[in-house]
Amino acid sequence: KRPMNAFMVWSKIERRKIMEQSPDMHNAEISKRLGKRWKMLKDSEKIPFIREAERLRLKHMADYPDYK
């Protein structure tokens, strides 16, 4: 399994928030909203998620050195 990228790290957190607020919303609609919101974020707002994704990538490389 591949490590999460910055969007996936961010969307995992945000998806929970949306599901708590709107439990009946369909997954496809949540995904569309998340995509739009991610694109609207400033680069500076994405930095913590980019850093976390990089940390996960490095950990994945250490844990699975033969992964292609």
Rank of each mutant, 00 (worst) to 15 (best):
K1L: 10
K1N: 13
K1M: 06
K1W: 12
K1C: 11
K1S: 12
R2C: 13
R2S: 13
R2N: 14
R2E: 10
P3V: 07
P3E: 13
M4N: 07
M4W: 08
M4A: 08
N5M: 02
N5L: 03
A6V: 03
A6F: 00
A6C: 03
F7P: 00
F7W: 12
F7G: 02
F7N: 01
F7T: 01
F7H: 01
F7L: 00
F7R: 05
M8A: 14
M8H: 12
M8L: 12
M8I: 10
M8S: 13
M8C: 10
V9Y: 04
V9G: 03
V9E: 13
W10V: 01
W10Q: 00
W10S: 00
W10H: 01
S11Y: 08
S11C: 06
S11R: 02
S11T: 04
S11D: 00
S11H: 00
K12F: 08
K12T: 10
K12L: 12
K12M: 12
I13K: 02
I13R: 05
I13H: 10
I13L: 08
E14R: 00
E14Y: 03
E14Q: 08
R15V: 06
R15N: 05
R16C: 07
R16E: 13
K17F: 05
I18K: 01
I18W: 08
I18N: 03
I18Q: 01
I18T: 01
M19R: 08
E20D: 12
E20Q: 01
E20W: 04
E20H: 07
E20I: 04
Q21M: 07
Q21P: 05
S22Y: 14
S22K: 07
S22V: 05
S22G: 04
S22D: 13
S22P: 01
P23F: 01
P23W: 00
D24S: 08
D24E: 10
M25K: 04
M25G: 02
H26V: 07
H26G: 15
H26M: 09
H26A: 14
N27F: 10
N27T: 12
N27G: 11
A28V: 08
A28K: 08
A28N: 08
A28S: 13
E29Q: 05
E29K: 07
E29L: 01
E29M: 01
I30M: 02
I30T: 02
I30H: 02
I30A: 05
S31A: 14
S31K: 11
S31V: 11
S31Y: 08
K32L: 09
K32S: 08
K32V: 11
K32D: 13
R33S: 12
R33K: 11
L34I: 04
L34W: 00
L34Q: 03
L34S: 02
G35P: 08
G35I: 14
G35Q: 15
G35V: 15
G35R: 14
K36N: 14
K36I: 15
K36E: 15
R37W: 06
R37H: 10
R37K: 12
W38V: 02
W38R: 03
W38Y: 03
K39Q: 13
K39A: 12
K39G: 11
K39M: 09
K39T: 07
K39W: 00
M40T: 12
M40K: 15
M40P: 02
M40E: 15
M40H: 10
M40C: 09
L41K: 03
L41M: 15
L41R: 02
K42V: 06
K42M: 10
K42G: 09
K42A: 11
D43E: 10
D43S: 07
D43K: 09
D43V: 06
D43M: 11
S44F: 10
S44H: 12
E45S: 01
E45Q: 08
E45M: 07
E45Y: 06
E45F: 07
E45R: 00
E45K: 03
E45N: 05
K46L: 00
K46M: 01
K46P: 01
I47M: 14
I47N: 05
I47S: 08
I47K: 09
I47F: 08
I47W: 09
P48E: 06
P48V: 08
P48F: 07
F49T: 04
F49I: 03
F49G: 02
F49L: 02
F49K: 01
F49S: 04
I50F: 12
I50R: 12
I50G: 04
R51Q: 15
R51V: 11
R51F: 06
R51E: 15
E52N: 01
E52Q: 00
A53C: 02
A53W: 00
A53M: 07
A53R: 02
E54N: 08
E54C: 06
E54A: 06
R55I: 08
R55E: 12
R55A: 09
L56Y: 06
L56F: 06
L56H: 09
R57P: 06
L58E: 07
L58R: 10
K59A: 13
K59S: 12
K59P: 06
H60G: 14
H60Q: 15
H60F: 11
H60C: 12
H60M: 10
M61E: 13
M61A: 14
M61D: 13
A62K: 11
A62V: 10
A62S: 14
A62H: 08
A62P: 13
A62Q: 14
Y64C: 11
Y64H: 15
P65L: 10
P65Q: 15
D66F: 08
D66T: 03
D66A: 09
D66W: 01
D66V: 04
D66N: 09
Y67N: 15
Y67G: 14
Y67V: 09
Y67M: 15
K68F: 14
K68Y: 15
K68T: 10
K68H: 13
